[in-house]
Design a protein around this nucleic acid. Sequence first.
DNA 1: CGAACAGTTGAATTCATTCAAATAAAGTGG
DNA 2: CCACTTTATTTGAATGAATTCAACTGTTCG
Lengths: 250, 250
Amino acid sequence: MHDVHLDTPSSKCSVCVLGQFCLPVGITQSDIAQIDLLVKERVHLQKGQSLYRHGDPLQSVYSIRYGTLKTEHCLEDGRQQVIGFHLPGEILGLDGIGNGQYQSDAIALEESDVCIIGFEAFEDLARQIPVLQQQFHRILSRELTQDQRHLLSLGSLRAEERLAVFLLNLSQRLAARGYLDHEFDLRMSRVEMGSYLGIQIETVSRMLSRFAESGLIQIKQRHIKLIDMDGLYELAGIPNPERTLEIKRL
Amino acid sequence: MHDVHLDTPSSKCSVCVLGQFCLPVGITQSDIAQIDLLVKERVHLQKGQSLYRHGDPLQSVYSIRYGTLKTEHCLEDGRQQVIGFHLPGEILGLDGIGNGQYQSDAIALEESDVCIIGFEAFEDLARQIPVLQQQFHRILSRELTQDQRHLLSLGSLRAEERLAVFLLNLSQRLAARGYLDHEFDLRMSRVEMGSYLGIQIETVSRMLSRFAESGLIQIKQRHIKLIDMDGLYELAGIPNPERTLEIKRL
DNA sequence: CGAACAGTTGAATTCATTCAAATAAAGTGG
DNA sequence: CCACTTTATTTGAATGAATTCAACTGTTCG
């Protein structure tokens, strides 16, 4: 079913450097031991390999430990669209809970490590550890909010604005994980960016060139530097959160 | 906080005609009694009144008993977009779980009745009734899938296709609730439709006129008849599920 | 009845797409 | 390691779908 290679966990969730994403805070030692037991195995994915495909029966949800994945939905007529890009600490496979089958394909954009969380056992444990249940609900709900922001972008913004929003969102998420946030490698192709943003790759390319020309960014292949954050935030139509402190000081 | 009018429940969830949506199947009598206790009150909304606003602290989620509501998100710069239209049996307010504040506005499109479900008590009860917890997770997950389909529509379809998909989706949801599904009243304005579909109202109007001209629909104000279902499904790029049986027979 | 609002239709404009071609990078096999 | 194919990306020019601007019609409501 999966074109993947299974590992047994070499290190536990309780020592996972990404624990702040995977696990709720304020949980006891014995709780953690139980949660560790949930993650029976881990998968190592090569670039292009799929974690699951739409229609596969839901057995697990997944937590990204290292790497980047995309999820995409497809239409009956063969057209398909990238719905999300996923970074370490994010949970995948949640769209399979609704009717027991994943509704999307999840594909690695680079070599990645993913923890497998048996869903039935997880639901059982969540019942016993209230804070885990709450955290799970929060994760599902935030996922909703994410998608709704994406809807707003596709429905109301011009290509240029969508791209700016996308770059800034990516930057913020990298920052939250302790990665460099003003200079990084785009793990997705222009085709995948365009698909995610609802625009053609030629437009993606043109907009990136335009951003570079205006001094907002520097881009060389998939390596990007965000130069003028204020300019980007202005383009995206949102206030620059990095300046929150300064604003409050005024 | 809410510009609403509170009622005490005159009839219980256990006798709610919409129970198949509100409540999981396969639940015991005593479970039902407990669930009844969750719904402490009900709100009656006039057209245009809001059930909650973004930023309001989450205390409850809501189940629509009668009527239609829209949810919308807004951008910092004032632009806003309709994210969803909601029919009886659907749960609202789920986007507030993530960080304790609703992320959207929910506004009645017509006179509506909504059940208030205290969220904390609900989470507690869900822990005690596994099937209720499971049902809740399914609802959240389906919500995700819904939004992702919407994303696909905004990102990959032309205006005409989006409108066809929208009309068919509405029709299916009405059918699932036992309403007339080939002839009904649109509860939303052209502006709201356009906002939801990511197109201008002039385009909505033009496309509707075009559909009528081609004999796909009949429309007079907000009253619509779907005439040529096959044609609409073809436009939407999806197979007509009403013909599933016939296809299987071939 | 008249004002305000909602919806339709036409014409001009624009943003993004499509088509086409060039360039750059990555992979392949000798 | 190099020539060569394949894939990814960029850029230009022509086209097109949807928007914007504008005018008009139909509804609703005080």
